[in-house]
Design a binder for these strands. Structure first.
Length: 326
DNA sequence: ATGGTTTTTACTGCGTC
DNA sequence: GACGCGGTAAAAACCAT
């Protein structure tokens, strides 16, 4: 038993180091976009620059060290300036200004009328800037979330784009107060995926979100309504490719499934039925028709739909098919 | 809140490997 | 006997009103 544990940890450790080396080697080989020369990182000054043309690639890592050098303590005293160290744990790195609400000066004396007015103006502007970057901060967090969820769901980049755009709009229109950043960003992903024609079910979405399904649904409706987004009810066909490929079915049955759904649409078997259920049933029925081995349980698994629903739907689908042939 | 519709849960029986 | 499938009834979820 203990032997087992030992070997596994050891294996994991070696695997880890290999991976680390690989990523290190990759970042080393970066090329400058301008002249395709080597890119070097200058930790001392917190810049990543091209060694050939000097183009600065990134400069987000801030050099917090002094820009001067001191050769003895006397010199250090002369040259050093003071101030709180900057920190990333505060949204503004602890550099924002606070203006006291009291109309007193630094010595506690009351201000004159002119001074008072001036302070009032300053407060107003200070507040404006503060709320502006509180939105920035909000946005940053939300975009991070959107990215995380989108990649967890395997959604393409354009979906992330749309999701971000929707979120920005929501923020602009002041839809956020009273709603969680999490919830809104999740809804944006959901909406964006649907609009891009690669829908994910609410269940799938809530898998990767930190928010309850019901809240996502509620927030989603709200966002769609307020921003009057054009998002049509999901087309069952859009789910088919994904289900088919996770079940490793052939192209043929995939086409078959879509055909089945189109026929069903003609007959109007739809209305009110969940698109996911229809898609799942179509996939199952198609697999049956092309003699490929799948079970209802398997389809139910990948589609997150109960077997009962699959049964009910696929009967309806086959009926519609028959009627069409008759 | 309510009522109607759809989906899910849980259970049972049947045929096949 | 386990598995895949079909059916049913009751509960739960959902939606429009």
């Amino acid at each position: 038993m203990s032997e087992h544990t030992y070997t596994t940890t050891r294996q994991r450790r070696t695997a880890r180091t290999e991976e680390d080396e690989k990523t290190a080697a990759e970042s080393e080989g970066l090329r400058c976009p301008e002249c395709s020369g080597h890119v070097i990182t200058d930790e001392g000054h917190g810049e990543t620059v091209c060694s050939d043309c000097g183009l600065v690639i990134t400069e987000d890592s801030v050099d917090r060290g002094p820009e001067w050098r001191a050769f003895d303590s006397r010199e250090k005293d002369q040259k050093s300036r003071v101030g709180a160290p900057t920190t990333n744990t505060m949204h503004d790195k602890g550099l924002s200004t606070n203006i006291d609400w009291r109309n007193k000066d630094a010595y506690g004396r009351s201000l004159g009328a002119r001074q008072r007015q001036k302070m009032q103006r300053l407060r107003k502007w200070n507040e404006r800037f503060r709320t502006r970057d509180s939105k920035e901060r909000n946005l940053k967090q939300a975009l991070g979330e959107i990215d995380r969820m989108a990649s967890a769901l395997g959604l393409p980049d354009n979906v992330r784009e749309t999701a971000s755009v929707i979120y920005r709009r929501a923020l602009e229109e002041d839809l956020l107060p009273g709603r969680s950043i999490e919830g809104v960003s999740t809804s944006c992903v959901y909406a964006a995926a649907r609009m891009a024609g690669v829908p994910r079910s609410l269940d799938e979405i809530s898998e990767v979100s930190r928010v309850e399904k019901s809240e996502i649904a509620r927030t989603y409706r709200y966002v769609v309504r307020e921003l009057s987004l054009e998002v049509k009810p999901a087309d069952p066909e859009q789910y088919v490719p994904r289900f088919a490929s996770s079940l490793e079915l052939s192209e043929e049955s995939e086409m078959r499934a879509k055909q089945l759904l189109r026929n069903a649409k003609e007959k109007g078997v739809h209305s009110g039925k969940s698109p996911v259920g229809l898609a799942a049933a179509a996939v199952y029925a198609a697999a049956l028709l092309t003699n490929e081995k799948t079970t209802q349980a398997a389809v139910s698994e990948v589609a997150d739909i109960s077997e009962v629903t699959i049964r009910n739907r696929y009967h309806e689908l086959l009926e519609a098919e028959e009627e069409l042939l008759a």
